[in-house]
Amino acid sequence: MIEKITGVIDLINEKLGRIIAWATLILVLVQFGIVITHYIFRDGSIFLQESLLYLHSLIFLGAAGYTLKHNGHVRVDVFYGNFSEKAKAWVNLLGTLLFLTPVTVVIGWYSWPFVMDSWSAMEGSIESSGIQAVYLLKSMILLFVFFILLQGLSLVLHSLRIIRGAEHLTEEKLEVV
């Protein structure tokens, strides 16, 4: 049962991360287009400039769970690299329960009213030609909270299985744990 839960969570964040990765290409193309239109045609678009912020937010906040799944978040790895499989699982378990989960819950708790106020006002850009969907931009915070907590749950379950000896770190699992 636990394997199925972790498999589903890992799959969700894997698929989401791969889809969101395309936003990086779109971000580069939009930035290139902005530079071309500015320097060649002496024209600019506030809408396009603001779209960079939306794309950047989507990439970094939307793919945070994917990054956690692939062990891509910053970690001081002075001792961790030399730890045994079970010691690494304990570090991951305690780190997730004592740091990742509380911090993420606090972010979600404090951002919820902020995001809901934005939705209730259908908040838009302060620029008339900007993107009139700031509420979507602010919603990225809650997307981050949801998917990082989801992947944190998977990390906890993987760690517990490793501690119990029901799962082992393989090259594939090194990306998960």
Rank of each mutant, 00 (worst) to 15 (best):
S120Y: 09
T104N: 02
A89Y: 07
I107P: 09
G95I: 01
V74L: 02
K86Q: 14
L98H: 09
H70N: 15
W90K: 14
A89R: 06
F114H: 12
I126N: 14
K69V: 02
V106E: 02
L93Q: 13
L93A: 14
A121M: 13
S111P: 08
A121Q: 14
V91N: 02
Y80G: 04
W119R: 13
A121G: 02
V78M: 01
E123Y: 03
W90C: 05
D117V: 07
H73Q: 06
H73Y: 06
L98I: 15
N71D: 10
V74Q: 00
T96H: 03
D117P: 03
V106L: 15
P102R: 06
N71G: 04
M122N: 12
G108F: 05
F114E: 10
N92W: 00
V78E: 09
S120A: 12
S128V: 12
G81M: 03
W109A: 10
G95E: 04
W109G: 03
S111M: 11
E127A: 15
Y80M: 02
W109R: 08
S128N: 11
N71I: 01
V105T: 02
I126G: 15
R75F: 10
S120K: 14
I126R: 15
F114P: 06
S120R: 13
V76R: 07
Y110P: 01
L98G: 10
P113M: 10
A89K: 09
H73D: 00
E123V: 03
